[in-house]
Computed example of a mutant assay.
Amino acid sequence: MHIWVTAPTAMEMKPLISWLESGSQQTGQQKYRFRGHDIVIKVTGVGAVATVFHLTRELEKDKPDWILQIGLAGSYHAELVPGSVVVVERERLADLGAEDRDRFVDIFSLGLESPDVFPFEQGWLVNPYLKKFRNLPIPAVQGITVQTVSGSAATIARRAALYQPQIETMEGAAFHYVCLHMQVPFMQLRAISNYVEPRDKSKWKITEALASLHQTLQQWLLAWPEELQML
């Protein structure tokens, strides 16, 4: 199979590259032959705009059999502690809309877009390919994507009430949007680096989250679930 692994930043990708360099054949710049499969590494940039641009540009040149986005995320739920790893089942563009005084109104409520016109399902960007994976060892969650990370009590409370998210990222919905339009099987894998709360970097666990993320990813790639072969 021809597999792409993408991440917003080189930092989030570095442990995978080191692992592949030590245990597979390098066939090109950030291209590896691993257990009979071709893996291509792509860093797509931070935020929705960079993700859409870089990913669409690459997919117009070539389409993989399967594409994975990895990275860090903030958690809205106490049980998703820093270091936890999740797979994202559905995504929402949580700050695309308008402010009406103290109220946020999204593009669907504004009548600018239909919540049930492809690729949306009731306003969500749902990954249909996860149904093929019967025994994923990690929780499937719903995420919101924002371009300004939540860092005040008022913003956090508003977004939590509107969408009941479990995690927050800056790229997930953009990744789902492009993959759905381009009809490429995909999966978004995230590790929790912090809780979504008023900003306090002293509580963040980036090193631990990256270690958990790549341990899970490596175990999964070594196992190569049968479901992946059927996508």
Score class of each variant (00 low, 15 high):
30 Q>H: 15
53 F>T: 14
231 L>K: 00
10 A>H: 12
184 V>R: 01
40 V>Y: 06
210 L>Y: 01
30 Q>S: 15
101 R>N: 14
56 T>V: 05
211 A>N: 11
59 L>H: 00
182 M>K: 13
92 R>Y: 15
130 L>D: 09
88 V>A: 08
37 H>W: 11
180 L>Q: 07
16 L>F: 07
96 L>F: 11
147 Q>F: 00
96 L>I: 06
199 R>P: 06
187 M>Q: 10
86 V>E: 04
139 P>L: 15
113 E>P: 00
113 E>F: 12
80 L>N: 03
128 P>H: 11
132 K>Q: 14
130 L>R: 03
181 H>V: 09
41 I>R: 11
201 K>T: 14
126 V>Q: 06
144 I>C: 08
153 A>E: 15
177 Y>E: 02
172 G>T: 09
23 G>V: 03
159 R>C: 06
73 A>L: 10
11 M>L: 10
133 F>C: 12
13 M>K: 04
147 Q>D: 13
181 H>L: 14
200 D>K: 09
146 V>F: 10
86 V>Y: 04
9 T>K: 06
186 F>A: 05
222 L>N: 11
214 H>Y: 07
74 G>F: 01
102 D>L: 10
156 I>D: 10
157 A>L: 12
120 F>L: 14
94 A>N: 06
113 E>L: 14
126 V>S: 10
177 Y>D: 06
97 G>T: 01
215 Q>G: 12
130 L>F: 03
83 G>D: 00
118 F>P: 12
5 V>Y: 00
13 M>D: 02
181 H>E: 12
68 L>D: 02
98 A>L: 12
217 L>T: 11
225 P>Y: 07
214 H>V: 02
22 S>G: 11
74 G>Y: 03
150 S>N: 10
88 V>L: 09
15 P>S: 12
